[in-house]
Every structure is written in C-alpha cells, then in structure tokens.
Design a protein around this nucleic acid. Structure first.
Lengths: 338, 338
DNA sequence: CTGTTAGCGCTTTCAC
DNA sequence: GTGAAAGCGCTAACAG
C-alpha cells in the first residue's frame, strides 16, 4: 500500500484537493467549509493514515520550518548543551533543527552551509570555525537570516550571541590573585580564535589591575595538533624553569582536560604543586578530586537567545538592518583547585 | 537578486531545462551533449552562482540522500560518538544525517520519527527509548528501511547493531573476582531497559561460574528520577549493612558518574573503601584519580556498521527479508579502580 | 544532440 | 462552500 496523498483523499471523497488541503491545514472554518465535509475529510485522512509530504509543502510554500545549526564539534558537551537548549525552544515554536558538525574543518563547514541552504532551511545558526569569513560575508550579502554563536567577527555587522570572554577570564585570574597566587600562567592554543584573544586580554587586565608584572614566559600557546606532548614540554618549563609558575589558567575546556591528564602523568598534585582554574565547564571538573574551579558559559541562554533572534529575523525580514549583538555573563564556579 | 534556478539558466542560454539539468548533473557526456553546450551551461551556472534546490530535486526524484538518526540524548557522549562516526561515513557516501534527540521521551521520539518520515528521509537509525514498540512495528509494516542501535527488541525481526552487553559485564565482574573481590554489588537503574537486563545476566553468570553465591542484597536498582539521593541511601546500606560489599559494578555511564560523585561526597576512597568498574566509557574515567576500569562500547563501529546496513537496505530494497543482526564486542579497559 | 511534456505533492488565487 | 488551475524547481521518459 503506497502512501496516501492529498489527491487520494480528494479522489475517494470526490472533491477537490483544495478543499482537502484547507481542512487538513485547519483552515476549514476560515474558508467556511461545511462541518459535514470537514468531518468526512478528517475521517478519511485518519483512515488512510495520511501524512503530508513536507518536501512538497515546503517547495510550494517556500518555508521549511527548519533551521540549520553548524557547530565545530558534536562531541563537545559545550555545543551539545547549546544544541539541546536550542532544540527544545525550537520545538516549542514549531521549528526543527538540523544539526551539523564541521569537525573544526573550514572546508567541511563551507559544504555544510551550502548543503543547508540548498535544502532551503529558513535560517542558520553558526559557530564559525575559521578566521576566514568569506562564507559569512556571502550570507550577509544574500541577506540570508543567520546568527553567530560562540565566535564572531568583530569587523562584520551580524547578529551574534557570545559570552563575555574577557570578563570571565578576568574574574578567574583576579580570584587566583586574591588567593595569593602571584605567578599565574596562561595556557592557550596556537593560532587560535578571537575568543582566546579576548580571554587573554582578560588575563592581562587582571594582572595589570593587581599591579602584577606581566611576563611572556608565563604565557604558553600549545600546538593544537600535538597537544599532549607539547603541553608536557611547556609545563616542564613552567615548573622547572627560571620563571616558576604557581598557578595555571586554561583558556578553554579541551586545554584543561588535556592539562589535567598531563599533570596527572607528571605526578603533579593540584593545588599543592600548582593551582588551576579553567574557562568552560565540564562534568569532570565537578567530579574530579579536587574539583576544578571554572568559568561556565551559559549554554542554555546562548541556545535560546540565538534561536529567538533568528526566528525574529525570519519572521520580520523587513527591518533586518539592526543586528542584535548579545554578550552574556558567564558564571564563576569556585571549587577547590587552588 | 533572486536565487538562480534551472529555468533561468535555460532562458539565458535559450535552451531547454532538460539540457541544463543533464549537464549540471554530470550526465552531459552520457547524453551526448556537445562540449560547447556543456561549457556554456557550466559557465552561466557559475556566473549566477547556481545551487540546485534540493527540495525540488528530492520531490521529483523521490530520494533525499538524507538519513534520520534518533537518539535518546544528544548530551551523552556515547551517542555523540556514534553520531560522529556515522556522519563521517555518511558523508563519504554522499549522504547527510539529520540528528534528533528524543530526550528519553517516548512521545517526543514518536513525533521525531513522524517528522523525519514526513521529510522523506531515505531511512532511519534509531536508538529506541522505550519498551513500547508500536512505532517500530509500524515502520516494519511499512517496510521503511531502518536499523536499531544500542537497544533492540528481541521479539521483533529487525536490523540492529548492539554491543555484547552480557559478555562485557561478565568480563568486568570476572576481572574483579580474579582480583579477589567476593562481595560485588550490581548498581543498576529501576524500570530500565533490555540492555540493563542483559548486563545483569552477565553479572550473575560471572558469579555463578566462580561459584560465588548470588545475593539479592547486593543488587541495587536506583530510582532514575532521584538518582543522587537514592544512590546515597543504597550505598549506605551497602557499606554499613549486614551484607557489606567490597566492590561495585555500574550498569551504565550515568550511574557511574553519579556514583563517583556520591562516593566523593560520602568520603569513600576508591579502591581502598570499595573497588569499582563501570559499563560504558567516559573521558572522566581516564582522567580521574584513580582511573576507573571500564567496559567501552565500540561507538565508531556501531555508527559505521549501522549506517552501512541501512544504506545496503536502501539500495537493495528487494531482498529486504533477511535482517542483519550485529553484536559487537566491547573493549575492556583496565585502570586502577580496584 | 536537444526539446517537449508530464509529473512529484502541495499551496493558493481566483472563479463559480 | 467548493473547484479549477497555475506554480514551486527539478527529473526523466519520450519524441524528434
């Protein structure tokens, strides 16, 4: 038994597709279709287990009620939480999310954006991977509704929802300073993104405000493609070099988790050998012993706000000129890693 | 400037949509369209930045090249890893994945399956939430291509890819027995799934083979909706009751992580106060101190195999009678939690 | 070698 | 109150 279509129902009832369509879309009363007719339609639709073909509907109406989400890494709980919040909000509003993970690959990201557009998603939410912004510029030029999350391009006027990276890091460093740590090392990643730069500037500012001399020797940028080994080398300098550190701040969650594993391997104890604090939250931080003090980004809010901004723009395409720029405050969670 | 369509290209070049369509789909040579024509088409397509509308294409061709994935929880790294493996395999084969998370809600799961079908996905991969199997039976009746992962219904003849739950748990328990633990408690979840039952039977069998008397007092089923508190109560019995346990095995990853947190709170040390081992792997297990011995499911393999079975069925709809049933061996990772 | 034409399943304007 | 018909953008059988 083939799947039932509108036409089948119309044929069985000997009426037109129009009538059936109106009834099934709840426009029966509006179109003053008689109760009797409506009931007949509904009855047959139910009996045939009719399900509208969304492809056809979307093609015809120009709306898919789907929004595309492009994130760099589906395995990262940070993005997973955002996606989750976004999905439940979308569901409430009658939209579906199509998730895609670029795996931190700019080429893949570009493909995904094209794929989603070719499927006519009503809008996009993107956590951009790369420094190259041509795709974003293109979207803007086409006036395609989209909002950036997590990472943004300061020079391009777009909607975005991000965390106050500078402020969050400032708070973490300031906290360590107040706990009497003086030689705080910043552990970042090489060639990385805007967000890391912002966090770095929070670090510097906290030192400056506390009148602690900034030392380049305490800033380590780890090689992304050689995380473990490079980190061990740099930690050795930090522990044994002339410029000994007494605390580490980690610029992002995967740096932190790798660092914890490296420290464990090196036999260093937190907080006796070194105090630590991390940007980003992770289940591990609460469960490990000692718990790791962290700057938690408000993932739920990021997801919901981004979605709402997008839907707003989709539904009011006119005044699309004023872009929404949202910077959310992170939450500082004190544990006992210092 | 509106988006370019096939028709636009045809109009500009004063030829038919057919010709343009063939060229753009790489069937130019096959259809013996002259090189000159082909070049013109490609040139114009490029100039107009033409992108085919997949909705239209799918509606017409009856194929979306998309497969739907329904998992219970997008935030669970176990499913995230499966999704990741599946996506990269799908990508290689020219398919896209549409992920959906049911949040362990059977009602939502049903909606998602309907939504995906109405979007005409070519097939489904489902990690079913519930004991109720009507949706699955319906899919089967409609001969919709699908494969189950992680959880399955023993009584229904379907494709599935699962882990050897019984064997994995057997190995963990057997290992603890060999380390000389005699009072091994099984920590499960109330009203839970088939998989937990299978793991439980592995537990019992390992005890039996070692001629250790099975005791119901050592089996604890935690209330899913009150995990922390209930666990603390039951652990107290296990530590202080008449039937003291010397080791715990956890039936699944969220039980294990909650347990670690509860043990930490209770001030119990692993492995001195109690030895532990867990089903499922988690980043935390490698990084925590001590590392937690675990039975790791082969997520990558699950993702890839499930996808390949599905694509096989999609592409050969004829002999769809013999369903593929795959049971994969987990990996046992020994750390120092015992 | 290329064009005509009939759909795919649905929405929606306009007419009766 | 209901129906006819055009059209969304693309595919593909058939004709020439």
């Amino acid at each position: 038994m083939k799947k039932a279509s509108l036409k089948d129902i119309a044929r069985i009832l000997k009426m037109s597709k129009t009538t059936v369509s109106f009834v099934l879309n709840g426009k029966g009363d509006e179109m003053k279709i008689s109760k009797a007719t409506q009931e007949k339609v509904l009855e047959v639709a139910k009996r045939l287990n009719y399900r509208p073909n969304q492809l056809a509907r979307s093609l015809s109406s120009g709306k898919t009620n789907t929004i595309g989400l492009v994130i760099p890494n589906i395995g990262d709980i940070f993005y997973a939480e955002i996606a989750k919040a976004m999905e439940s909000e979308a569901h409430r509003q009658g939209y579906n999310i199509m998730y895609c993970s670029s795996e931190e690959n700019p080429e893949r990201e570009k493909e995904l954006i094209h794929m989603l557009k070719s499927r006519q998603v009503d809008g996009l939410i993107i956590a951009p991977t790369k420094l190259d912004n041509t795709e974003i510029l293109q979207l803007k030029k086409e006036q395609y509704p989209f909002v950036l999350i997590d990472r943004h391009f300061p020079k391009i006027n777009t909607n975005y929802v991000i965390t106050d990276n500078k402020g969050g890091m400032y708070q973490a460093v300031d906290f360590l300073i107040n706990k009497n740590y003086k030689k705080i090392a910043f552990i970042g990643v090489q060639n990385y993104l805007e967000v890391i730069k912002q966090r770095f500037s929070g670090y510097k500012e906290a030192l400056k405000d506390a009148k602690i001399r900034f030392s380049n020797a305490l800033v380590k940028e780890i090689d992304y493609f050689n995380l473990e080994a490079d980190m061990e080398a740099k930690f050795t300098e930090l522990f044994d070099g002339p410029n000994q550190a007494d605390a580490f701040v980690f610029a992002t969650n995967f740096v932190a988790t790798t660092a914890l594993s490296v420290l464990k391997k090196m036999g260093k104890k937190i907080p006796n050998d070194v105090a630590v604090a991390s940007f980003d939250e992770r289940e591990l931080f609460a469960l490990s012993d000692p718990g790791i003090t962290a700057v938690a980004q408000p993932t739920q809010q990021i997801g919901e706000e981004a979605l709402n901004i997008l839907l707003e723009e989709i539904n009011n395409p006119d005044q699309s000129s004023e872009k929404k720029k949202v910077i959310l405050k992170p939450e500082f969670i004190v544990r006992n890693s210092q």
